[in-house]
Every structure is written in structure tokens, then in C-alpha cells.
Design a protein around this nucleic acid. Structure first.
Length: 662
DNA sequence: AATAATTTTAAATGTTATACC
DNA sequence: TTGGTATAACATTTAAAATTA
């Protein structure tokens, strides 16, 4: 829906982006001009193929994926396009200097520009005055360009770096401005626009450290453009309020979009998700799940307020609760095939560490106690596949792990087609591990959590039986969802949204293959904590397939306890009273001997009480035990590679070879 | 000297604000 | 007033580099 609208205003570009383009092997640093040596490697494998091959490349991709250029008219702004004569390279040198450094004029459009550009192009594309170009590159605004870039992507999403790349490749004006020196200005503007316009939404990229995907907000497109989020005048004393609003606006939009996406199909209809324009879902596994951004940028703010209520919350008007940015889980795509297996550094990152499998839900940020109580338990599904096994599919199974071994994301696949997950046909079993649960015993203020630095949350809701899910969400999904959505508690929203979707999907029959839901990251852990976690991870680095027979639940609890302990460790130091338990419980209810993993089995058994009870046990002792045995505590995903479902999940105290290379 | 662990640094990424058109 | 561009200040996060054990 929105998409169409969005598309309208913008001329279509016949450009295709390599879906596999992965500019960031090395996460956030996509910098092409990476200063650092390694960076080069960082460049995506696809680098060569890159996003948009110059000029006609589209074809290359086009074959496979429909490029955006809908109308075909698509004249691109491309250099080729008429553009500047001579400047094939697009170097339309703008007036003045290209370097970003300076003054606004740098990219600005001055009249002089006309000569430089492919005016015709712009003219054709848009109704705007043909004659005068608003900008050096044409009449399109940054937002328009960004929109095009995103739309040109087969998956309707691009990372920031990809957007940059697209610009450079496709907009003559920027062609020669890709270097760090001259790109600062326009890149800043790109970023600015992405953040500013609710028309764009940021989607978490499950990949390790990867920057977010940017997509078109399905809802933001009314009229092609979402309302602009304008800064509130500063005069109002409260800075927080303002900022909160700004964020809230976009977040809200995101939520709405998400809700729309989810609900559109009819609140209950599972199809809703797939309808989301930007949804990659159309492609098998790629599906988006909505997540909110746990990460709160307010960190600093929070920290300053230590222990107290989140300022934003306090300050934000009821009508505009601070919303976390909505994140849509990124499809597995990011997981570029082969990536995992690859060498060295990259590989480790992809390895499914326990931590990676762990999701932590931060219950805070405006979450009411009541809600918290009600939502005492959040269950996350654990990603079940080993990265080794098959990332290739976009089954979306991904492990987002942080280099440091901290949990960053977890992906899960929910499967789809049938209750038994053998999902995607790629033999990739969606859930080898069963549901993964995360429990937060106490609602804690955002800041607390943040300071604890644990902000990761991942889940595969779909794995839960709808019933269970509902239970978790406190029986009445509707009410919750409503509340959450409206109240906009980030966490709750996420949870609820996810839950809703999950339910919907399940009821309706599932989502997509690759409902990878990732989210959250553990950030800022203090080194000591990191260390602990790392060590913990280290020990657990290899998750061995558990060979049946284990009491998975117990094991899971144990693990959870350990993890909890870690999290509760004083190291967190903020004195927060909140208890955050990051438990990764691998309930293996899903594994069945019969060679199939049936999700169905799990849900019914899942009971909140069970978890709560388990959590109440003497954790210390358990933890101690667990830690002592830590060495032996290994999990191995190796077997997962077989994935056909017959996987046994065992926690072993046996030896274990870690599947970690080396 | 080699290695691992830790800390620091640089840069990318994001958000918000402001000025001006 | 709205919508854009241009800049900038900041915050967050990560990989890489540097340092330390």
C-alpha cells in the first residue's frame, strides 16, 4: 500500500541492487574507503557485484528480482542517463566545491546547476518544474533518492552504506563524491533524512554488528511522504520531552506501520505481514517481524538519571509515549551464505554462541509494573540452526553475535508451513532448540537495564504455541496488544507486536520461513561483565546437540540461571535494584525423536508457572554448580547442520568439541 | 618473542536541532 | 506553514589498533 504511494512520487529507477550485497562484512564500518586495512576485506563479498552495477546492471539482477523500476520508464537518474554530458562520471562538479566540508552550498542546487545535470531526466520523472532543478542532482529530494534506492533493492531494504553506494553509483552528481572527503555532507544529509522522515524505518539487521536496514515505512507513505518530524522548539525547557517526541513520532509511525502491516491483513490475519510492501517476505524466507528497538539511545540520559525513572517516560506526554524505534527483524538475508563458514573473524561472529542464542528482554522503559507482572515471562525461541549449517538459505536463520561474544541477536525461525518445522525446504530445521525463554523477574527501569547493558532481546515467537504466547502475554492478547501498542512501551510493544504477529501467524498458519527475529544488542557491557559473559560464552561456545534424554527444561533453567547470575552480577554496578535475567533456556520441547521437530509439542507444555517456579529455585547453588561444570557445559550445534529436524538437543557435560573453528 | 586479553581509538551509524531557502 | 537542504552536535556501537599481562 504505502509503497505504491511512495513510489509514485518518485521516478522509478531501473536499478537493481544486488540482494546479496553485503557491504558490511564488517559491520558498521562499511566504509568503502575504509581506512583500515581489513576493511577491504570487509567489503562484501559481493562487492564486486555490488549493488548496482553501473549503468545497466540492473539487468543482472533484474533477472532474478524485480527491480524496482516499475514503470520501466525508469530513467534513472543514472549517470548514463542523460546526464551530464561528458560527465559520464557524473561528476557534475557542483558549483563550488564538492567537498563536504563546506557551506551549505556544497550540494546545493544553485541555478547554475542546470547545466550539469540531466535535467530531462528529472523532468520526466517528476512533475516538478522541468526547468529548474531543485538540487544539483535533479529535482528529487534526498528522501526521494533514498526511497528509490531502497525500492531498487530487491528486498526493499538497504543499509546506510548501501544507500550511499547507491547514490554514488546511480546519481551522477554523487559519483565523484563517494570519497570520504567529499561525502561527509551529503551522507550526513542522507542519514539525516533517514532519521527525519517517518517515511523510512529502520530495521534491525541481524548480522553481527551490522547496521540497520532501512526500509520504506509502509505507513509512512501517505501521499508519498510521511509527515515530517519536525523539531520541537527548543524553548520548552524540557529537552527530554522534545527529543522524546521526535523519537516518538517516528517510533510511533513505525509502530503503526508495523501494526498496520501486521494487522492489515486483518489484525488477525497472518497475511498482514506479508503485505507489507517492503516486506521481503515475498521472498521465501525473508520476512519481517516487527521489533522495537530495545536499544535505547537514551542511554546516556538514562545513565544520568540512574536508577530513576526514565526521564523520557516521565516527561513524555501521555499521548506521546516514547516509543522505541521499531525494528523489523531482518531477514536472514543478511546472512550471506557462506559467510559463516568463512574464515576467521567473520566466522566466529556467526557462531551460535550461547549468548547469541540468548535473548534478553528488558522490561523497562515505561513498562508498568502491572504489565511487567503480567509479562513476567517472555519467551524467546532460540535460533536453531547452526550457522554452519545453512545460512545460505535465507531461511533467515541467523545468529547475530557480537564479536565479543555477547549476545546480540538471535534469530529464530519460525516455521512455517507446517507445524513441524522442517521448514524451508532447505532442510533447515527451524528449531532445533526449542523455545528460548527469557525471563525478567523484575521490571526494571530502563536505565538500569541499560546500565546493566543488557539490551538484547530475541525471540522467536512463532515457536510458541499461540496459547502459550497468549498466556505469557497475559491471557488477553488483545488487550495487551492494544495497551502495549497504544502505550507504546517499547518493550511491550515489541513483545506484543511480535506476539500478535506470532499468534496471527500461527493461527493463520504461519509466517514465513524465515521469521528471524532479531533484536537487541548487548551493548556497553562493562568490560568485566563482558568478560564474564564471554567466558561464559566461551565455555558454552559450543552447543552440542543434546542427545536426548536430558531434562531439557532443567538444563535450560540451569543455563538460564547461570546467565542470570552473570547478569545480576554486581559488576553491573549501577546498583540497580532491578533484576534482569537473561535466560536462555533451550527448551527442547520441539525436538522429537521422530525426526521432526514439531513445534506443536512445545507450546502446550509451556507453562508460565513452570518457569516462574524454576526461577525461584536456588539459583546460587545451581549457578555454582553450573559454573563449576562450565567447562563441560557445551552445546554443540553441529548436529544441527543436519537440520532435518532430527536433531537431538542435549546439553552435555561431556566434552565437547566446540564447533568453533579452532 | 609470541600470544591472549584488555583497553583505547577511529569511524560508521543514528538522532536531533537549527538555520535558511 | 510546509517541506527541503545543509550543517552540526551528540550518542551509540563496532572493528581495528594499541597496550598490557
Amino acid at each position: 500500500m504505502a509503497r505504491a504511494a511512495l513510489a509514485d512520487p518518485v521516478a522509478d529507477l531501473d536499478v537493481a541492487i544486488d540482494p546479496d550485497f553485503e557491504p558490511q562484512k564488517r559491520p558498521r564500518s562499511c566504509t568503502w574507503p575504509l581506512p583500515r586495512p581489513e576493511s577491504s576485506s570487509a567489503k562484501p563479498e559481493s562487492n564486486d557485484t555490488d549493488i548496482i552495477p553501473e549503468e545497466e546492471d540492473d539487468e543482472e539482477d533484474g533477472a532474478t528480482t524485480p527491480t524496482v523500476g516499475i514503470d520501466g520508464s525508469g530513467v534513472a537518474i543514472e549517470d548514463q542517463s542523460s546526464n551530464s554530458p561528458g560527465a559520464a562520471d557524473g561528476s557534475l562538479s557542483s558549483p563550488g566545491q564538492e567537498s563536504g566540508g563546506s557551506p551549505r552550498s556544497s550540494h546545493s542546487p544553485p541555478a547554475t546547476i542546470g547545466a550539469l545535470t540531466p535535467s530531462s531526466l528529472a523532468a520526466q520523472q517528476t512533475p516538478r518544474k522541468a526547468s529548474s532543478r531543485r538540487n544539483a542532482w535533479g529535482n528529487q529530494s534526498y528522501a526521494d533518492l533514498i526511497t528509490k534506492a531502497i525500492e531498487s533493492s530487491p528486498e526493499q531494504r538497504l543499509t546506510l552504506s548501501q544507500i550511499y553506494d547507491w547514490m554514488v553509483r546511480n546519481i551522477p552528481y554523487f559519483k565523484d563524491k563517494g570519497d570520504s572527503n567529499s561525502s561527509a555532507g551529503w551522507k550526513n544529509s542522507i542519514r539525516h533524512n533517514l532519521s527525519l522522515h517517518s517515511r523510512f524505518i529502520r530495521v534491525q539487521n541481524e548480522g553481527t554488528g551490522k547496521s540497520s536496514w532501512w526500509m520504506i515505512n509502509p505507513e509512512g507513505g501517505k501521499g508519498g511522504k510521511a509527515p515530517r518530524r519536525r523539531a520541537v522548539s527548543m524553548d520548552n525547557s524540557n529537552k527530554y520531552t522534545k527529543s522524546a517526541r521526535g523519537r516518538a513520532a517516528k517510533k510511533k509511525a513505525a509502530l503503526q506501520a508495523a501494526a498496520a502491516a501486521a494487522g492489515e491483513g486483518g489484525g488477525d490475519s497472518p497475511s498482514g505481514l506479508s503485505k507489507w510492501p517492503g516486506s521481503p517476505t515475498t521472498r521465501s524466507t525473508e520476512d519481517l517481524d516487527v521489533w522495537t528497538d530495545f536499544r535505547s539511545r537514551a542511554n546516556s540520559n538514562a545513565s544520568t538519571i540512574s536508577g530513576l525513572a526514565n526521564p523520557e517516560l516521565d516527561e513524555v506526554p501521555d499521548d506521546e509515549p516514547p516509543l522505541s524505534p521499531m525494528f523489523y527483524s531482518s531477514p536472514g538475508k543478511a546472512l550471506s551464505p557462506g559467510k559463516t563458514t568463512t574464515s576467521g573473524k567473520a566466522a566466529p561472529a556467526e557462531l551460535p554462541r550461547l549468548a547469541d542464542l540468548t535473548g534478553t528482554m528488558n522490561l523497562n522503559d515505561g513498562l508498568t509494573d502491572d504489565l511487567m507482572d503480567e509479562l513476567l515471562v517472555n519467551i524467546n525461541l532460540v535460533p536453531t540452526s547452526s550457522s554452519q549449517s545453512s545460512p545460505n538459505d535465507s531461511s533467515g536463520f541467523t545468529f547475530g553475535s557480537k564479536p565479543n561474544g555477547l549476545v546480540s541477536t538471535s534469530a529464530i525461525s519460525s516455521s512455517s508451513s507446517n507445524s513441524c518445522l522442517s521448514s524451508n525446504g532447505n532442510g533447515f530445521s527451524n528449531s532445533i532448540f526449542g523455545p528460548h525463554t527469557t525471563v525478567s523477574l523484575h521490571p526494571s527501569p530502563m536505565q538500569t537495564i541499560q546500565e546493566n547493558k543488557q539490551t538484547s532481546f530475541s525471540s522467536i515467537l512463532s515457536s510458541f504455541g499461540s496459547q502459550t504466547l497468549q498466556d505469557l502475554l497475559n491471557s488477553d492478547s488483545h488487550s495487551h496488544s492494544d495497551v502495549m501498542m497504544t502505550q507504546s512501551d517499547p518493550l511491550m510493544s515489541q513483545a506484543s507486536a511480535a506476539a500478535v504477529m506470532s499468534q496471527n501467524s500461527r493461527r493463520g498458519l504461519m509466517l514465513r520461513d524465515d521469521p528471524v527475529m532479531t533484536f537487541g544488542t548487548t551493548r556497553g557491557l562493562q568490560s568485566s561483565q563482558r568478560e564474564m559473559l564471554q567466558s561464559n560464552n566461551h565455555n558454552q561456545n559450543s552447543l552440542r546437540p543434546l542427545n536426548g534424554g536430558l531434562n531439557l527444561a532443567n538444563e535450560a533453567n540451569n543455563l538460564a540461571n547461570v546467565k542470570q547470575q552473570l547478569l545480576l552480577s554486581p559488576l553491573g554496578g549501577n546498583g540497580s535494584s532491578s533484576m534482569q535475567i537473561d535466560t536462555s533456556i533451550f527448551l527442547n520441547g520441539t525436538v522429537s525423536n521422530n525426526g521432526g521437530i514439531c513445534q506443536d509439542r512445545f507450546p502446550q507444555d509451556l507453562d508460565l508457572d513452570m518457569f516462574s517456579g524454576s526461577l525461584e529455585c536456588d539459583m546460587d547453588s545451581i549457578i555454582r554448580t553450573e559454573l563449576m561444570d562450565a567447562d563441560g557445559l557445551d552445546f554443540n550445534f553441529d548436529s544441527m547442520s543436519n537440520m532435518n529436524g532430527v536433531s537431538n538437543f542435549t546439553s552435555t557435560n561431556q566434552t565437547s568439541q566446540s564447533w568453533v573453528p579452532g
